[in-house]
Design a binder for these strands. Sequence first.
DNA 1: GCGCATATGTACGATAATCGCGCAAATCGC
DNA 2: GCGATTTGCGCGATTATCGTACATATGCGC
Lengths: 278, 278
Amino acid sequence: MDKRQARPYHSESLARGLMVIRAFGHDHPRLRAIDVARRTGLNRAAARRYLLTLQDLGYVGSKGDYFYLRPRLLDLGFSYLTSIGVEDIVQPVLSRISERTQASSTFAVLDRDEVVFVARAPSKGIFMLATSIGGRVAAHATTLGQVLLAAMPPAELNRYLAESKRVAFTKWTITDADALKRKLDRIRADGYPLCSSEQYEGIVAAAVPVHNQRGEVVAAVNINMYPANASKVKVARQYVGILREEVRELEAALQAHSYFSSAATRRAPRNLPALNTQ
Amino acid sequence: MDKRQARPYHSESLARGLMVIRAFGHDHPRLRAIDVARRTGLNRAAARRYLLTLQDLGYVGSKGDYFYLRPRLLDLGFSYLTSIGVEDIVQPVLSRISERTQASSTFAVLDRDEVVFVARAPSKGIFMLATSIGGRVAAHATTLGQVLLAAMPPAELNRYLAESKRVAFTKWTITDADALKRKLDRIRADGYPLCSSEQYEGIVAAAVPVHNQRGEVVAAVNINMYPANASKVKVARQYVGILREEVRELEAALQAHSYFSSAATRRAPRNLPALNTQ
DNA sequence: GCGCATATGTACGATAATCGCGCAAATCGC
DNA sequence: GCGATTTGCGCGATTATCGTACATATGCGC
């Protein structure tokens, strides 16, 4: 009846188990069954069952009453990384970009209003962004995010502009919807965004989009520089050529692979009029 | 009855859902429901239910009949990475090591007979190992693996030597159990292993163990060099000092964090005599 | 040393989540 | 156009999962 939304196509056990994994993290690297229960809202017995299941599968370990995550969890993310071809295709290109531009470079995709770092090649300098693979930052304050936002369908972009609350990381961060919209317009005209200190003071960055064979933007690649190496935005602008050149090859290589290709949408939906299956 | 092993503490749905995720990968970046069913051994309807669940949760997407993994999956591995403090603690140390030794460095842990790469800092050169975060290699052929094997309890080590089948990557790879045992003995005496071309032709590497506050080896850090930079093993040996020095600070920092500390094993097991909870 | 508070491990009946078959509709290859 | 596949979904059967309960064990305050 109305007890709960009936969703016969939804496995609650799986959802709850994944919730258990996410209960762990930087501030909570070791948790007891009851800690997990409290953090997830599950019953203690249930939380314990999921923990023991995950332990059987090798994803978590335990010592005394405490549970902790084990490196096998990286396999799950690794499935994603290999499915888009990070090791074989993306990483070599990033390395070449870093080498040719003396800047660190990053390959990233959009997930809702955040940019997710998928691959990265550091520069020769000491410089190393703190966030690592799988890390996320708000889209509005990075070149990666801006180039991805600029490629959004208008309707979706308007929803983003309306719903996302954009915080300022520095005084140059663009948070205002109209200002951001103007910047995105400029990006569409130029083909790439330049950021100066919008996320980190003193960092200059440029990004270019990565297209699949149908011309859709599926990812972005950027370079980050120190002002010491590139005190003028000019320099960044000059490197955009290299970035474009390398990304063109990246696109070709990615299209040979099938993840982004979106080639065979074998069938249209049955009854419904082509719902956007997101 | 005897239909199936009754395991009231085990959630099959969670296990099956995770199996679905692992059905994807490099050669299978896009799968239909029935493909997943075949690859996992699940019923098609069940596979589809798990896929739809994962889609609801944002871990997979779909286009037409095809499903694909989404970047949110990286969050799961990210939970592990942040729980051991990769970003805050490990990465800065690795960067310093790479800078001081001009070599790429890696932080890794052991999972059964494999080494899992957890964090990495590339060297200044072009050199970049293919495998990325979450990647695995057989333990016996890398300095990382050897230093971790050398620290294993004797019983476990013997089991490893007996059960693991060790393949040769180059003609210098040590695969013989006795030879490996001798090398591990030497490592215990020296405190660190040196590898020359055991995994890749021409690569020289050295590793040191990372201890928790109880003196247990919980991870390892290594450096990899090109013969061009270090044609003599001597050079590697000289860098071990730097490696040791930095890792000592790493250990101090990690101990402040609680993941590896294994501090409060609050209670001993109830009835059983302190079973090794793996 | 003695409660009090809290956590664990396990059992068990109730319930609802999950299973897997079966079918109509839609697509592909030939 | 036809046979072979696959999808989406409904539905009854079954069993996996829930959550309460209880004995046991630990830590802490006094």
